[in-house]
């Protein structure tokens, strides 16, 4: 079975380390916050200028001046700090954020990522995604392995305009966890009940399959 959105978030949450500063993109990455394992403390960075994003507010505590990068009303947790957009991207660009998790349309064996525009469709903008992929060392791209029509999104060369070049080394899909090494995807783990053959069939870019490919556990 392919992973659900929740399982993908849960898998990423298990990669968090105590004391990590983490930026979570919109969509599945946002769900990661719901699965932070007990005993682990992480500080969420929201690129509009908030380090230490907390839960959504109670109705009576809603504050128009307190939002996250998805423009949702949020709170600040204990230990939070708030700063300007220039400062926010200084810490991103400067490599101070320990882990960035973001969605993608396509990734390729060179570590390129496409996540912001589809030619011919309305382009709304890249927001902070280009800065995040250029600035972070440790990025997990979270995406579906193939389109609904079965076309692979793990390619030898991205077909869509890039968000960043050569910056992705870790990819979690609904079928597998892969790392990118020396111009190939390396299959590191597979979703429960998903066969290596299915992953091979749905990966268009070069793929190395080790002798043992462990199944993910939830």
């Amino acid at each position: 079975m392919a992973l659900s959105r929740e399982q993908m978030a849960q898998w990423v949450a298990n990669e968090l380390k105590d004391g990590d500063y983490v930026n979570l993109g919109i969509g599945i990455p946002t769900l990661v916050a719901n699965y932070v394992p007990p005993g682990i403390d992480v500080m969420l960075q929201s690129e509009n200028g908030l380090l230490g994003m907390g839960a959504f507010p109670l109705e009576q505590d809603i504050d128009a001046d307190m939002i996250n990068a998805g423009k949702q009303t949020v709170t600040a947790r204990a230990g939070a700090s708030i700063f300007s957009s220039a400062e926010s991207f200084a810490m991103i660009r400067g490599g101070h954020v320990d882990l960035t998790v973001l969605g993608a349309f396509e990734v390729d064996v060179e570590g390129n990522i496409a996540s912001w525009m589809i030619p011919g469709k309305l382009v709304k903008g890249m927001g902070g995604a280009m800065d995040l992929v250029a600035g972070a060392d440790n990025i997990i791209a979270v995406m579906t392995h193939a389109s609904k029509g079965g076309e692979s999104k793990l390619l030898s060369r991205c077909s869509l305009p890039l968000t960043g070049a050569g910056c992705i080394r870790r990819v979690l899909t609904d079928l597998a966890y892969l790392e990118i090494e020396d111009g190939a995807f390396v299959l590191k783990a597979r979703a429960p009940g998903v066969s290596v053959e299915e992953i091979v069939a749905k990966t268009a870019g070069a793929l190395r399959v080790p002798d043992e490919v462990p199944e993910m556990r939830f």
Binding site: A86, F89, G125, G127, G128
Partner: peptide
Amino acid sequence: LTPQGTLAEKMR
């Protein structure tokens, strides 16, 4: 369209 951090830094 300008990346958000680049936009902030351009003005800074």
